[in-house]
Design a protein around this nucleic acid. Structure first.
Lengths: 252, 252
DNA sequence: GATTATGTGTTTGTATACAAGAAATGCAAG
DNA sequence: CTTGCATTTCTTGTATACAAACACATAATC
């Protein structure tokens, strides 16, 4: 039953390898497409169109969109369909506040609970992440970088925090994709490696300090601080550009 | 369209007064039923049965169950239907850990951002809550007490935290309903009032201190600490009791 | 000429029919 | 009497058909 539809062999099979039910697959593919900016913020996600693309009925699409909406990467307006979320600067700040809070707790818990296997997996993920950035696959890099933080949350052994972290990481990735600054190395894997070192050494203070510095680093690369005008304008007008009618020059 | 089905005038109209779409109504009613323990942990939630009860199709029920599963009050097993969640002691501990974390942040933010109107609303909610407990409506009391904490989260003006808090409060209410200790005053409204006082005085340290004490108070009333044997057994066997066939006495 | 009303087309919301999977029951064999 | 297997029934998963709401365009009136 999972085999009867596999028209989903896009790019490098970035969608999660877990061969779950169809809506998992659809969910993962839309998710990846959003993070890799193949779907721009504000883009309308028509149920029927997506259904045709993935070869499934609207029922499945609807479930996937519902999940994405719950994680905040898709906005689901009643009777008006789904669009790719375009977080405002204020929303981005709220997300970053929550993330600092959660990352601090996760780091402390991971120092306490992370097993050797988990640390090894984390190291592997950092390697994969570096490979992605090296080969220029920015979208996959952002996604893997997010998955690193999610894996860390799993090492903390607190299910509610994992769930929350998943939502925060998704939205953060969206924000990074949207508000990226000039610098290209986004989530420096060096910092990730140092972090694993501190956790492996069971040095909670240092690990937390590194994590907080890492957070600072991430949002210092974004154009959130004061400098929000240009990106904000883009977000503000993105929904107007959806209609197919051509706009006349605004300054005439 | 919202008016065409109203066979939902149960008890005291506790379901949220927002007259949203059908699945909101169904969601709220099942949610309330679980919190007020009219649905015991482990109870199977048949889609068709619920559909008949609420006079809607399985489609709506399915959406509602999906939401409830996302909040953690319902467990959704693939191909095997939904059951009312029965959090283990360990899961309860994880939830409480996360709640302390979030409540601390929310309190700090509320001190900073809460408006006079919001504080007034909070006071009103405490009054309502006291009325419920006074008139012996324990289920509604637990629910209102949870809604107080949710309202406080809204005053903190951080959307991701509100969303997370909603999930945590739901699960906490379920835990309280499941692991209640002997004492009857569950979420002492006095503590809620003191908390509002401190927030109104913009005294962050005192507010946080009160909130943490409040959290201590809540879980000191539960049978989580060491004393978990009896309740654990109940949780372990609860799903066996679902079948309608009568069990023979276990100790014979 | 601008603004409002109306009609058409497209998209979402809901219900239902059908297919696939799991639990339960009954039968048969040891 | 117990145990293993097959059939049967019930429940969930998915697709599709229908109804309602919205967006857009056209036309009519002020």
């Amino acid at each position: 039953m999972n085999e009867q539809l596999q028209p989903l062999k896009k790019h490098t099979r970035t969608a999660k390898s877990r061969t779950g039910t169809q809506d998992d697959i659809v969910y993962a593919h839309i998710f990846d497409a959003i993070l890799e900016q193949r779907l721009a913020p504000g883009t309308k996600l028509s149920e029927e169109a997506l259904g045709e693309i993935f070869g499934v009925s609207r029922t499945i699409i609807r479930r996937a969109l519902s999940r994405l909406a719950h994680e905040g990467v898709v906005l689901l307006r009643p009777n008006r369909g789904a669009v790719v979320a375009s977080p405002s600067v204020d929303e981005a700040r709220q997300i970053f506040y929550a993330r600092r809070l959660v990352e601090r707790a996760i780091t402390e818990l991971a120092v306490e609970h992370a097993t050797a296997e988990q640390l090894a997996e984390l190291r592997q993920m950092v390697t994969d992440e570096r490979d992605c950035f090296d080969r220029g696959d920015r979208g996959a890099g952002i996604r893997l970088s997010g998955e690193f933080h999610l894996k860390l949350a799993e090492a903390a052994k607190n299910a509610p925090l994992v769930s929350f972290q998943r939502s925060l990481v998704s939205q953060t990735s969206l924000i990074i994709a949207q508000y990226e600054g000039g610098s290209r190395s986004h989530c420096s894997y060096d910092e990730h490696n140092e972090l694993i070192d501190a956790i492996e050494a069971r040095d909670a203070d240092k690990a937390v300090q590194l994590m907080m510095h890492h957070m600072d680093h991430i949002d210092s690369k974004l154009n959130l601080d004061e400098d929000t005008a240009s990106d904000d304008l883009h977000a503000v007008f993105s929904h107007l550009l959806l209609g197919k009618k051509k706009l006349r020059p605004a300054n005439s």
